[in-house]
Design a protein around this nucleic acid. Sequence first.
DNA 1: GATAGTTTCATACATATGTTTGAAAAGCAA
DNA 2: TTGCTTTTCAAACATATGTATGAAACTATC
Lengths: 231, 231
Amino acid sequence: MASDQTRTAILAAAERLYAERGFGDVTLRDIVAEANVNLAAVNYHFGSKDELIAELFVTRSIQTNRERLNELKAAEERGGGRAAIEDIMRALVGPTLRGCLGPDREGSTAARFMIRASIESVPPIRRIKNREVDHLRKFAAAMRRAMPGRDDTELYWGLHFALAMAHHTIREKERLLRLSEGKCDLDDVRAIIDRVVTVTVMALTMGEAAVSAPPPARPAVMHGRLTRQDL
Amino acid sequence: MASDQTRTAILAAAERLYAERGFGDVTLRDIVAEANVNLAAVNYHFGSKDELIAELFVTRSIQTNRERLNELKAAEERGGGRAAIEDIMRALVGPTLRGCLGPDREGSTAARFMIRASIESVPPIRRIKNREVDHLRKFAAAMRRAMPGRDDTELYWGLHFALAMAHHTIREKERLLRLSEGKCDLDDVRAIIDRVVTVTVMALTMGEAAVSAPPPARPAVMHGRLTRQDL
DNA sequence: GATAGTTTCATACATATGTTTGAAAAGCAA
DNA sequence: TTGCTTTTCAAACATATGTATGAAACTATC
């Protein structure tokens, strides 16, 4: 089937252009020019522009979520059914950060597309995005297992802040670079992931200290992770 | 001058609509209908659509920045020239969070407009936004005074994460509400500000602990702020 | 109250953009 | 090949949208 060739070319071209210039600035004519196909091909193969965008987004969403869940699963197996909280957070923010930051590549096209999608919030994507909550719930559940007895509210805030830091770092990396005059190394993805994870775990354990015991034991996480030279 | 009336009506209507529906979905015709003025009035008074958006954005930017700087200044005077790091962060994230969250109001129109602006990143705004770095530098300077000897890199990351948490909380409040099934109280703005500030200060002092002294003293901030009942 | 400058208005213009159409081309099974 | 389906193509369509225009209404100064 040569038709799949056209379909694939459109998908690839669209993702590339959307990732680069955003949804607002890319027209169907831009896409078909990039893909070297006829204008009508988009509507023939996808029905509409919105359905094209939706297909792009669901495909990539599934991929990212699978990556995250794979890491989570690996961590849980490593821990005999209960993953360490750090590894859970690492599974949450690692795939996205690795995909979107880094020295050589400008971030893969797929990752940059997903960033755009989470920034610009165009209608077809907004509709799909609501399912993301179900995915995040799996991480909330893992966190609950890792920190039993912890108040759920705290878990949600921790999850929320982890995504905040990861996401914002990707979105505003230019600004952070300029603000810090290059001092913040945005190519050292490992260090960034460590940093986000460390802060998140501190935020999560901090609450525990304040709520459970008046003389709070220093959080367990500070022992291992905090002596890294990159902090 | 009756001309100012039209100008003002356009500005107000535009801000309201942009705040509500975003830049992508609002046309000049929507704006002039909302403002009850003629279509040509926009180009007569502002020159172009982009210049209208730019004027809205610079006005609000100046206001937000002034609010922040006022709080910062007050904190520095309270501390005799050197503000506590918590109060600096509070001055940074407080105005925005107070403006955009809260029970009664849906967040002021002005604040919601600024959120849109920071989300959608339309060309005229992108051009202006570059000056924001200069504003943030004032906070970096205050932080440096509050934590002398601290590595600059850490300060920038702390500043960056504070904005990340504040911003992301505003952007994704619906999702956090659904994820937590209402357990995360997004109407208690004071508690949210405290939470963001506490985590940020922990992130900032955590590095200090790891870098300076091998047996890290429990961060000073944990004494005062951490016993709040809302954590 | 006449005149000059300012503002408003209805309307038109130009163009960008998603979509549709109908015919031509290509693929494929018999 | 023949006949049918699937795919491609150029062109047209419909419309939304920012902008421009020229006349009318309004305002203020003398």
